[in-house]
Design a binder for these strands. Structure first.
Lengths: 189, 189
DNA sequence: ACCTGAACACCGTTCAAGT
DNA sequence: ACCTGAACACCGTTCAAGT
């Protein structure tokens, strides 16, 4: 029963999706792998690194080729893809947000947004600020939605009725705000 | 040494600010109060409720009267005040975000935003979506900033240089996007 | 390279009983 | 109303030692 890093991450995602983040403990994961908890520390320095690897793999699995299209459609596609990737697994938004809060993770979507905005002619400063603003929205919205969905399945009361298009509306607000910052001579590019 | 709910919350904020969220345990708090950990369960059903009360108190302490001004300035003031309240205590953004992720907390700023937007003439649906979009930005930005500040004081490398006006720029992007949704006959109100 | 076994220093929560 | 004392069922992490 010898495992590599990759096997451990795969099993961790399995436990996450079946039992949730609260049950994704080093001890539980060890049991699932048929191994002592301490064995996992041969592959990861600590639980934080394991979670970072899990978050990266979740996002990697959601990776799709982006369409050739105007910058705003590309930005929208990156955000939607990120959202879909997080919602595809139980507590996925939580994991990605936790890892991001620790200062790691989601570097790929961030870079993709900065590039898309830079290509559209926005200055580098604004591109970075706008990219982070978009990520805050996507993370926050996904976490919110996953919490409410889960609260619903737990039998708790869903206090805020959420429309299916709520994400698109919020996203379009932010993108519209970014669009306004374009130099006027680029409005038709 | 008999305490009431309020005393427990105050001491919890004290521990939070001095030692951080990771050290705000029921056992630690009990020790600081000179009481058994189990005694806290007389005042709070569980740790989650305690944290919710802590988050509410943090926001309450940051409460300032809002200026009479156009809707966009009011919205901006609500967001800045929320941000300041979260950053005023160590790990404050983390606490508020955690509580919010659990489906509670930050109801006051949310309601204030919905009212400000509704008064400006936005339809109720859009007001709610815009209010949540703003909260996602403010929470995400504050958590990000607090993480990086703390990483800096821990001696870690601050990977993304953050400008002091970064919050204002991001916030103005979102508000500008909302402004575009105004019915044209209200643009000058 | 990968794992065991045992320990260390903790957690949140419950509950009968006390004042 | 507020608290004690003791227990239950867990955590993440370290480390010498094994193969």
């Amino acid at each position: 029963m010898r495992y590599q890093r990759k096997d451990v991450v795969e099993r961790a995602i399995d436990v996450l999706d079946r039992h949730g983040l609260a049950d994704l403990t080093m001890r539980r994961l060890g049991t699932e792998l048929g191994v002592q908890p301490s064995a996992i520390y041969h592959h990861f320095a600590n639980k934080q690194s394991l979670l970072a690897a899990v978050a990266d793999e979740l996002l990697r699995r959601g990776d799709r080729p982006l369409p050739e299209s105007p910058w705003d459609a590309r930005v929208s596609a990156i955000c939607s893809q990120l959202r879909d990737a997080m919602l595809a697994y139980r507590d996925g938004a939580d994991v990605v947000a936790t890892v991001h809060a620790f200062g790691l993770g989601a570097a790929a979507p961030y870079d993709a947004l900065v590039v898309a905005l830079g290509d559209a002619g926005f200055p580098a400063d604004l591109s970075r600020t706008a990219a982070r603003t978009l990520l805050h929205f996507v993370f926050g919205h996904a976490a919110d939605e996953q919490t409410h969905l889960q609260a619903g399945s737990d039998g708790a009361i869903a206090d805020a009725p959420r429309d299916a298009s709520d994400f698109e509306v919020g996203l379009s607000l932010v993108i519209a705000g970014i669009r306004l910052q374009q130099p006027t001579d680029l409005h038709q590019v």
